[in-house]
Design a protein around this nucleic acid. Structure first.
Lengths: 257, 257
DNA sequence: TATGTCCAGTCGTCTATACAAGTGGAGCGG
DNA sequence: CCGCTCCACTTGTATAGACGACTGGACATA
């Protein structure tokens, strides 16, 4: 079916090359929504790989949300495409750029301090451990979008105050200087009314609707690395989510029963 | 390591039996957060299965968010446990019961009608297709929590008005009578102020903070099956999310550098 | 017509094996 | 002490084959 042979010498795994090819066919419209994708057997034969490898490719496609499998029937292109990169953990800067806006920040406070009990609890800090506290107003194309107050344990990035350039992304700085990579975050959003100060900083009327976010971000090993409280303008922001059913019989990665 | 042998005659897959056992050990504290889980090799030997089966068990554990793998190092118990069943697709009734509250509803409107263009678009309806519209106030332990307006294509459940008992869950009715099972939903939350009518129905003051939710739910094959607009009290509700980094090199189901 | 049987195609599970590649420690040599 | 190699252990990728279970259609039967 595919024009080009796989590159068996590449460092890119075969299953991944196959997955990319199928993805390309879906994007181009060669494989349409609801239509069956080539079966494991077909892929195995046409690409000259074992069935398990073909299967791995299809599973990975499913775990991207681009297809789903049904036992006895086949694997089909899913309508709900996750092209939009739904709700990943993204820094503000990444999120703005993904939307095509220019991110900017103004630093209000940046200091080292003893954490409040809320922060200490969220970050699992030991008794006298300190945090960096960074409070910023964040703009998209010169429009103030949110007030963000970030807390990071000093232990993880001892000389952050020397390394951090306010024009850059905090996440980028943490990654490049300390290898800190956020893997997962828990986030709570509440609906509230803008306080006097919030209204002034965000340039909206007092008692305008706003979101209050509380977010704890974790490293791969589950260690909490960042605690953020932020206030977003309700008139410029929405919270978009994708919810899924969790199946009882979970699986090498996806589909079900 | 485990006391009991696997049941090889069971219809339950071996990898799933192993996954359940590991899960039990994590829950009981025998395997602690951050500690390595038995390696693929160890599981294979101690349980008498092939390494691929042991691997499948570990992968499925990872996809539950209970563990993570690192190449060359091992597989470790994750701190961030998803026991709480984070944000799945749940019906209001399910969600309330999960929280230990008694769900109740009052039906305001339940009729068959022509969809608005917003509804028609979200549900991908053809020209003259009709929908059932169900508007309810939903209570948790007698406290009004939200006003919910659901739209379901008539095509999917022709005699819903005869089959639906307002005391039951709509999802349950759809499943039991028509085999309709929601697999995934996209949801948008906005922060807003309660209108006069909303305030009256929810028993809050006018201009109190509220959430406006817009949600489209899909079947396994991606077909949209339900469109809901709802207003939740801001003083009694929070939106809780878990965000993840999506890895470039996606995989039979999980981890990644 | 309605019902049941068979069968090809499909995905699900499992085995046994092989090699690649990353990690971390032991031990050696300078 | 530092740096190096080597090695054991881990997960990642891939193969080839087997059997099971489910689906849907073709076909035969009552």
């Amino acid at each position: 079916m595919s024009q080009f042979a796989l590159d068996r010498k590449s460092v890119i795994p075969l299953y991944y090359q196959i997955q990319q090819r199928l993805l390309e066919q879906i994007r181009s419209g060669a494989l349409k929504v609801g239509q069956p994708v080539p079966s494991e057997q077909e892929i195995a034969e046409s690409m000259g790989v074992s069935r398990m490898t073909a299967r791995h490719a299809l599973k990975s496609l499913c775990s991207l949300g681009m297809a789903y499998s049904q036992r006895g029937k086949g694997t089909f292109v899913s309508r709900a495409k996750l092209e939009k990169d739904f709700r990943q953990v993204l820094s503000f800067s990444e999120e703005m750029r993904a939307r095509g806006s220019q991110p900017r920040s103004r630093v209000l406070i940046f200091k080292r301090q003893n954490p409040s009990s809320e922060v200490a609890q969220a970050l699992h800090l030991s008794a006298q451990e300190q945090v960096f506290m960074l409070r910023r107003i964040r703009f998209a194309d010169a429009v103030p979008l949110c007030i963000e107050c970030t807390h990071v344990p000093v232990r993880l990035c001892p000389d952050l105050q020397r390394k951090f350039d306010p024009r850059n992304s905090l996440y980028q700085t943490l990654f490049e200087n300390y290898g800190i990579q956020i893997d997962l975050a828990d986030e709570v959003a509440e609906a509230a009314l803008a306080s006097m100060e919030e209204a002034r900083l965000l340039r909206v009327r007092k008692k305008s609707p706003v979101f209050h976010f509380t977010r704890t971000a974790y490293l791969l090993n589950g260690e909490p690395a960042e605690f953020v409280k932020s206030t977003y303008r309700g008139d410029r922001c929405k919270v978009v989510n994708r919810l899924t059913r969790v199946s009882k019989l979970t699986v090498g990665g996806e589909t079900q029963e």
